[in-house]
Amino acid sequence: MSFKCGVIGLPNAGKTTLFNALTGLEAQAACYPFCTIEPNIGRVFVPDPRLQVVAQIAGAQKITQTYIEFVDVAGLVKGASRGEGLGNRFLGNIREVDALIHVLRHPRDPGSVGTEVTGNCREDLAIIQYELVMADLETVNNRREKTMKMVKTGERHYKEELSFLDKLEAHLNQGGMARDLMGEDEGSFFLQELFLLTAKPVLYVFNMHEDISVQERQVLREELMHALGDESAEILTLCARLQAELNDFTLEERREFLEGLEWSDTGVEELIIASYRLLNLITFFTAKGKETRAWTLPKGTRAVTAAGKIHTDMERGFIRAEVIPFETLKQESSFVKARDKGLIRLEGKEYLVQDGDVIQFRFNV
Results as ranks from 00 to 15, higher is better:
S232R: 13
R221Q: 15
T237P: 05
E184K: 07
E231H: 09
V205R: 05
L181H: 00
L203M: 12
G183S: 12
E253S: 04
T237F: 04
D211G: 05
I212T: 10
A240Y: 03
L236D: 10
L236I: 14
T237M: 12
R217A: 12
F206D: 00
E210P: 06
L194K: 00
H209M: 14
L181D: 00
L246K: 08
L196E: 01
L242Y: 10
A233I: 08
R217I: 08
G183F: 05
M225P: 00
G175S: 02
V202L: 04
A244M: 12
I212F: 09
N207D: 11
M182L: 15
M208F: 09
Q192P: 01
V202Q: 08
N247H: 14
L236C: 12
E245W: 07
P201W: 09
R217M: 13
R179G: 03
A244N: 13
L194I: 01
Q192L: 04
Q192W: 02
A178V: 02
L251I: 08
E210G: 10
L196G: 00
L196M: 02
L191P: 02
Y204F: 09
E193C: 01
V214E: 14
E216W: 11
Q218L: 15
F189V: 05
N207R: 11
T250E: 06
P201H: 11
R217K: 14
S232V: 11
E231L: 09
R255F: 03
L251K: 10
E234I: 10
I212P: 02
E222T: 12
G175C: 02
E252M: 05
L196K: 02
G176L: 01
E222I: 05
